[in-house]
Write a protein that binds this DNA or RNA. Structure first.
Lengths: 353, 353
DNA sequence: CTGTTAGCGCATTCAG
DNA sequence: CTGAATGCGCTAACAG
């Protein structure tokens, strides 16, 4: 007799997930659940024969460890939370790859959320991640540190990538924005340009501020004033950058060079110039020299003379993750946050013909 | 007297995480843990006054629900597993955004792993995700279905994006590869080209096979033979595509048109042509007509006459996620997998001057 | 409306 | 070397 739900007895108490548990394996192997657990954890202090019996039972039952239950006991979820302002941006996609790479090497998985540059959404994501017991967090932060309080975070370490937050003293990895922007600007000035436009995104964005700072710094160093009417910030996407660049081109006295503070703005500038050339003819458009922060695909085929400040987003992700794991593994214990600035390189592309 | 670990009494049993639990909140609010739980779940069947008391206690203790413990009880992890062949590819980054968007709308989070086109790694990721009790899986599959057996998957629904797997009857979202490739090829043939090159990635990759199929189909329809020596597959990145294209350009009888089966190959072709023009002079290079599958940034500024088959990766992600949630929510119950083919559009770009 | 009991699946005690 | 008891934090199921 092996009847279960067939007759009208007890409701045949359906076990939670229906998937086999340590108990099922233990029964089949004729051992205690504890022995199964030991085998699962490497099989130390288990006689080879028992071990083998258990291993066979595991295969036969199709058992798989429930990580959730484990982490409830162990206080180790094996999860890292990652929030990114825009996952679809190739730059951050590459960064995510770097994070994932390091996390996988440490046997952790990443929970990824898109904050969409929205602080409230970011706070919600962080809260949710913490509720899932992530062991640490990596953020491309949206802005201030009002959320991200110690009470909220508990003792979960946190690392910031690409942007810092004033007043939040945690491990942070940045690009050398100031250095890169000033080096680029210096070069333009040294080439003889005195009317250089600046196209950037919102100044509320950390990197935007820093790159503008580098731009001004170079001018100060060379004793050449910044032409304020040529400083245009707030363009978050290619099309708005294109519009602004078109305006600049139609000024009575247009810039002779342009610094694009990120690849969105640089590409917008290329578009505006090339579009005007195609409509008004090449002669109608002043000869513009372009320097952009961030490299991008096909930069070397730009129809406008271009140089870029290039850097490695994947390395950015790797670094942030590495610093996080150093804390998780206790390899780094200082309370104060570390600040790493990744170096940049200047690349110059030739023009066709 | 409030001494704890100070004297040599009991080891002051440190509670698991040190973070407050329902019990802590219950004590402070002078209610049972169950009432706390009810308040946390929306507060139905709880007197407003109690509810308020509990809510205050929650704030005071800084309590946050432990999702892990919840899902152990509920059998609902609130997690979706996603494996992608290469997260750094802008195309899949955009797709991931679509998935995340839909998942967030369903109050789920995504666990993301990079399979790196490696079936073994993919299998490992899937196993790990299932161990974490994901409610469902979305994959850009690497290849066959040898892993992904029903035993492994249990009853977790699975959706495939971008590629199908022979013999795995699950919900699948594809791009209209065959239709797009044949439409593009047809147009080239109708423009009078009879020697059209095909640059694609490995034929073992699903989309690669399908796009080559469309290419051949169009030839068959028009009664024009495929020039087999011009069919080159296996290029997985831009630089190898560039190399192959250079070879084609140096054939005694080079192609008059090229179909790039994905954006890596199309960009490689552009590079090869432009590079040769720059080195050997524009006259030395035959006039080539280019048609590419996938759109990409700056495609409209291509120095080579270009058309593209464009489509929307974010929508691909949204669709896959939507189908998955339809199954999770029981809105769709047929066992057989559904197949959706997303439409493509043809775009033509003018040449400069 | 509220509380008590019990157990999700696992692993850390502690006895044998 | 092995097992029994216990509880991680939470919430169904059932009393009251």
């Amino acid at each position: 007799m092996d009847e279960r739900a067939s007759t009208g007895g007890k409701p045949a108490r359906v076990r939670g997930s229906g998937r086999p548990t340590v108990v099922d394996v233990a029964k089949k192997a004729q051992v205690s659940p504890m022995t199964v657990s030991r085998v699962l954890s490497g099989g130390i202090n288990v006689r080879p024969e028992m071990r083998e019996r258990v291993e066979r039972a595991i295969v036969e039952t199709g058992y798989r460890r429930n990580q959730n239950a484990r982490s409830l006991r162990n206080q180790q979820s094996g999860l890292i939370g990652v929030t990114i302002t825009n996952i679809a941006n190739p730059y951050y996609a590459e960064m995510q790859r770097g994070i994932e790479e390091v996390a996988a090497a440490h046997s952790r998985r990443i929970l990824v959320g898109n904050s969409n540059e929205d602080t409230a959404l970011e706070a919600q994501l962080v809260g949710d991640f913490l509720g899932r017991q992530v062991e640490g967090l990596i953020l491309v932060p949206t802005g201030n540190a009002e959320h991200l309080t110690p009470e909220l975070l508990g003792d979960a370490p946190i690392a910031l990538a690409s942007r810092a937050i004033d007043g939040l003293d945690v491990d942070t990895v940045l690009i050398d924005d100031v250095g890169g922007a000033s080096a680029a600007t210096r070069q333009l000035l040294d080439e003889g340009h005195t009317r250089i436009a600046f196209l950037g995104n919102q100044v509320s964005v950390f990197t935007g501020r820093r790159r503008l700072k580098g731009f001004r710094q170079a001018h100060a160093e060379r004793g050449i004033p910044v032409v304020e009417e040529l400083v245009r910030v707030g363009q978050q996407d290619v099309s708005s950058a294109e519009t602004v660049m078109s305006e600049l081109l139609q000024l009575p006295e247009p810039p002779t060079a342009v610094f694009g503070a990120n690849n969105r703005n640089t590409i917008g500038a290329i578009r505006a110039i090339e579009r005007m050339r195609r409509s008004a003819g090449p002669e109608a458009v002043p000869d513009i020299r372009l320097f952009g922060f961030d490299s991008f695909e096909l930069a070397d085929l730009s129809p406008v003379r271009l140089s870029v400040v290039s850097h490695d987003p994947r390395e950015l992700g790797r670094q942030a993750a590495t610093m996080l794991f150093e804390r998780l593994d206790g390899d780094y214990v200082e309370a104060a946050g570390r600040l790493v600035e990744l170096p940049v390189e200047l690349h110059h592309y030739d023009l066709p013909r």
